[in-house]
Nucleic acid binder design. Structure first.
Lengths: 333, 333
DNA sequence: TTGTATGCGTTATCAT
DNA sequence: ATGATAACGCATACAA
């Protein structure tokens, strides 16, 4: 009483329908075939519950209709939303998504790329941190947030404009002396431009500013020290703070609370990313929103576009400002 | 000047090394082979930058070392964390993960299952909502949070114990009259047991309670109405509220704030799931924490265990209580 | 239009 | 121990 575990193949279908192998193949692939034959084949497929073996298919065509997404993890809201939208965009084109969490591990990143190249996927979308990442010429690769060379397109938000927008918003809302708080990799990537954009915006709007840039190992307590050092007579000398991410903003909000500074009355805070509670509800803070659906769509588009021709090296997508409770709704003096 | 896009195969390696095809295969698979041969083959592999074609491999062995994860999405914190841990557990066993977001779409769920059965994956882990989901006998399937039949193991938190624990905690913290707020599918699944567990706990500890159970289409405003109706002389008659998820708890907290009820002074709130800010920081509220890493590990273990023998139909994993600011830290009268 | 035959890259079973 | 050869399931060029 052994359970028959063999799955029916095209050959079985052909035998069942009393037609040739090739005919079945044509029916399966929607190629023209005699009506009566088609019906018989379809009946046989139904009867045997036949499914094409995509591995045999892939072996022939070297197309797998699968793309790999390399991101650090899916726990962090930004990455998990990104994964969500990229999955959606891939699905729209009938592609499946292989998810590869790298946990910021550089060698893991390389391993995944190598793995992905073993003909398992048609292309890779990667948000990676390994500056020496080796990726084969032959496999389509699209990078997020970091330029990886002339032949690999990079998709990102317009981080510079985002920084600028933050400065402008703070100015619009009445700020005079602001701060920029940053933590991040020493790696050269697109999000680093938030700083320059912010400086630019401050200069343009006559805001004076100070910066606190944490090193890789530092904890958020450094921010607390920094802010504490800038309190005079119980009052923070900044009336606006731009944080490099919503996560930083959120930590800063906790610190400000501890230091008895009212937000947004005493000091207004703007973050970056556009993280929402539970993925789709309120914003955590006032923020510069990254256009995740657009980023995803662009990545997939670039990855799958047939003509390898003119792939742009860098695509920056427009960001928007969203109010999230940590800035004034309107400026009234 | 056409770019040669063909990838080297075993045959190329064999030719390069001057050995037979089979020998290369053995080297690649770590089978015993003459030392000098091995070195020559390895050199050739290195030189040609050869990678095994996993599709050809899969065609032979019908093992793909890939599992599919079916979840509604990766935007919601609970699902995205789940995906993260399952990915980790799979990786530990050298399995890759195909991510399938179903968006709660029942037909989409079925489509994914069918797709997954096309020999693309060795097994499926699914958190699904389609009561009529058809899954082939031949493919290993592990369900999360919902029993799907005698042959499909189901892994879940001990939801009943979780509900009970919530009641006990509220009792321990001095509550007398509490409420249970629930929203969820009418589908029969494990999380539904939170209610029974809570009732059970209330009875055991002499708590009186009321319930508000929303229907599928209802909005959270129903909760607001319910709570407003239970305010007497400006004071809520409940001193404790158990919410079926952290998401509900969070909405309830906003409502309570609007109704000028102090948390946890006037009323204590406990959620369920153990969602943290940014995936790994503070809890959103006091909560019953689901053991996601254990759930993931158990799912993968059950999915990949070789001997198909005695798969338990239902595995319930222990939950814990975590303080998250919406309950008192200790009970003092 | 339909059937037949070959090859995709790998593994495994043979002889050698 | 190594080399040749036959499958694996499908697609396709070619013959009927």
């Amino acid at each position: 009483m052994k359970k028959e575990t063999t799955v029916p193949t095209m050959k079985d279908v052909a035998k069942e329908a009393g037609v040739a192998l090739g005919t079945v193949s044509k029916v399966v692939n929607g190629l023209p075939v005699g009506e009566s034959y088609r019906l018989r084949v379809e009946a046989a497929i139904e009867k045997l519950n036949y499914q094409v073996n995509s591995y045999a298919q892939g072996l022939k065509s070297s197309r797998t209709y699968t793309a790999a997404l390399l991101i650090p993890n899916t726990k962090t809201p930004f990455f998990s939303s990104l994964a969500y939208y990229i999955n959606l965009s891939l699905l729209k084109r009938n592609y499946r998504m292989l998810l590869c969490s790298t946990d910021f591990d550089l060698s893991q990143e390389q391993e995944y790329v190598t793995m992905a190249q073993q003909n398992k996927v048609d292309g890779i979308i990667g948000l990676t941190y390994n500056p020496n990442l080796l990726v084969d010429e032959h496999i389509p690769f699209v990078s997020i947030d970091r330029s990886m060379g002339p032949n690999i397109p990079c998709v990102a938000s317009d981080n510079f404009a985002g920084g600028q927008l933050a400065a402008e918003k703070l100015a619009d809302l009445g700020c005079k002396h602001v701060a920029f708080l940053r933590i991040g990799s020493s790696l050269s990537n697109e999000p680093n431009k938030r700083k320059s954009g912010f400086e630019n915006g401050c200069l343009a709007r006559g805001l004076t500013y100070e910066m606190k840039i944490l090193n890789d190992g530092d904890s958020f307590e450094e921010f607390e020290k920094f802010l504490k050092d800038h309190i005079q007579n119980g009052k923070l000398i900044f009336d606006g703070i731009f944080c490099v991410t919503d996560n930083v903003a959120w930590s800063v909000l906790k610190i400000l609370d501890k230091l008895h500074q009212q937000v947004p009355e005493d000091v207004q805070v703007i973050g970056f990313d556009g993280i929402r509670m539970f993925g789709d509800q309120d914003y955590i803070c006032s923020t510069i929103v990254q256009p995740l659906p657009d980023i995803a769509e662009m990545c997939v588009e670039l990855l799958l576009q047939e003509n390898m021709m003119p792939k742009p090296p860098l695509v920056c997508l427009p960001v928007t400002y969203a109010w999230g409770g940590t800035t004034r709704e309107n400026f009234e003096e």
